[in-house]
Design a protein around this nucleic acid. Structure first.
Length: 207
DNA sequence: AGGATGATCGTCT
DNA sequence: GACGATCATCCTC
């Protein structure tokens, strides 16, 4: 199964268009199409929520230097970093920054657009809104697991990005589930999307 | 609608 | 041996 123009995800995204600085990449990925090729066809949707994990970020797995688990974070940009958490769940990141610098963007939620029935099958009778809302559910719906860790993003591989059209309005807020650096607004989402895991203030909203 | 809890295991100290 | 970038379920309000 190979990636090409997809009626719902759009046309293949030229990776050269993407910034590799972590915050810039995180913001750019909001609204981008994500497709995973499998025997069941292309399964994916529009990225509606991400989190940035910066170099020298106390909330990042890379904070204490390279280990076997976080190795991909220190590899080249635009590769998958996939890790297992809480004994149950896989989480999917796209690496950022030049090789040697440990950083990545966690993909937290998707608006399902392609292979929705396949996602529903994998997720087991979940409501459409919950098919890929949250990083664990997203990985399960897309069948992303440890075997994808370190793989390059792109056409010719399993995981590819698509250009779905114009950039959306982006909301920002604190990251989820971390204990360090809680105050930093490093979570980015499509403003107002119902597929975001938890609400974020609209851009320019009053505090 | 929202808070608490158990599941479950790889990774690092 | 503790804990985690989570989720589903069960409970109370």
């Amino acid at each position: 199964m190979t990636h090409r123009r997809h009626p719902r995800l759009g046309r293949p995204l030229d990776l050269a268009e993407l910034p590799i600085e972590t915050v810039a990449l995180a913001r750019r990925l909001v609204g981008v199409g994500l497709g995973v090729a499998s025997p069941d066809g292309i399964v994916g949707g529009r990225i509606v929520e991400v989190e940035a994990y910066l170099p020298d970020d106390p909330a990042s797995h890379a904070f204490r230097g390279p280990t076997r688990r976080n190795r991909a974070m220190f590899g080249p940009p635009l590769h998958a970093y996939v890790y297992f958490i809480y004994g149950n769940h896989w989480c999917f990141n796209i690496t950022s920054e030049p090789e040697g610098v440990g950083a990545a963007v966690l993909i937290r939620a998707l608006e399902p657009l392609a292979g929705v029935e396949v996602m529903a099958l994998r997720r087991g009778a979940a409501p459409a809104r919950d098919l890929a809302r949250g990083p664990g559910r997203l990985a399960q719906a897309l069948a992303i697991g440890g075997g994808d860790d370190g793989a390059p993003i792109g056409f010719g591989g399993r995981i590819a990005l698509y250009d779905t059209g114009g950039p959306p309005e982006i909301a920002a807020g604190p990251r989820v589930g971390i204990s360090a650096a809680r105050e930093l607004p490093l979570r980015f989402a499509v403003a107002g999307s119902r597929f975001v895991s938890s609400p974020l203030p609209r851009p320019g909203a009053m505090v």
